[in-house]
């Protein structure tokens, strides 16, 4: 067991570590796209304009209703694979899978994030906007300087939950061949026939990632809270 989990040619630790890097990269690449998309969809859903609200609801209904794995396959076989084979035939399958995973996870993440942002928007009283306008701030300035700082604090617990879900959802990309944690442990398990050891190890790695994330989130929450206290 020690040689199996050692670093180098004999063991699989280095391979699994490369998988960890891929998983973390994928999650980190998805996060900003998903946050931005989710914020825009939330803006649309809380707007006074009915057409925008409808468009936003359709978006969340679709991407919250589809199984994540199916969304991934739809994007992979329906969008990423055709585009990459026709436009960039030289691209490696890892790049294709990574992009497909990123798009699919962003769609899923953003549809959930939009709900979190939406309820945060609703928690901010109208007076905050009116106060902003009354001191002569423009629409954009009110949003950026008055509403957003409060919004972030209210939305943070919900968003950190979504981040943990995102970390777990990245495991699905192993199904389209991206060499993430689960894929690498799968290969190791198949070669060594030590499936329980390696899949158990994969679970531990995910747990460690979750614990690290919880610690980081705690730090962010502290920082955001402290800023608030200073005012």
């Amino acid at each position: 067991m020690q040689t199996l989990l050692s670093w180098g040619d004999q063991g699989w630790l280095d391979d699994i570590f490369r998988g960890v890097l891929v998983t973390v990269q994928l999650a980190l690449a998805t996060l900003p796209v998903g946050l931005l998309l989710g914020f825009l969809v939330a803006l649309a859903k809380q707007s006074a304009e009915p057409t925008l609200r409808i468009a936003g609801s359709v978006y969340t209904t679709i991407f919250r209703g589809l199984p994540e794995l199916l969304t991934l396959f739809l994007i992979y076989f329906g969008v990423a694979l055709p585009i990459f084979t026709y436009l960039f035939p030289g691209a490696s399958d890892q790049v294709t899978s990574f992009i497909a995973g990123m798009i699919a996870l962003s769609l899923v993440f953003s549809s959930y994030a939009s709900e979190v942002f939406l309820s945060a928007f609703r928690a901010i009283p109208r007076g905050q906007y009116e106060g902003g306008y009354s001191v002569g701030l423009s629409n954009g300035q009110t949003m950026r300087l008055v509403v957003l700082p409060q919004l972030v604090r209210i939305a943070l617990p919900g968003l950190s939950n979504l981040w943990l879900i995102l970390l777990k959802d990245t495991a699905l990309v192993s199904a389209i061949g991206l060499a993430d944690i689960l894929r690498q442990t799968q290969i190791a398990a198949r070669v060594t026939k030590e499936a329980f050891l390696f899949f158990g190890f994969a679970c531990l790695v995910y747990l460690v990632l979750a614990i690290i994330s919880s610690y980081g989130i705690g730090q962010i929450e502290k920082a955001v809270g402290r800023q608030d206290m200073a005012k």
Binding site: L164, K168, A171
Partner: peptide, 8 residues
């Protein structure tokens, strides 16, 4: 709750 259902 901390590990992916797929891994489980």
């Amino acid at each position: 709750r901390g590990t992916p259902l797929l891994a489980q």
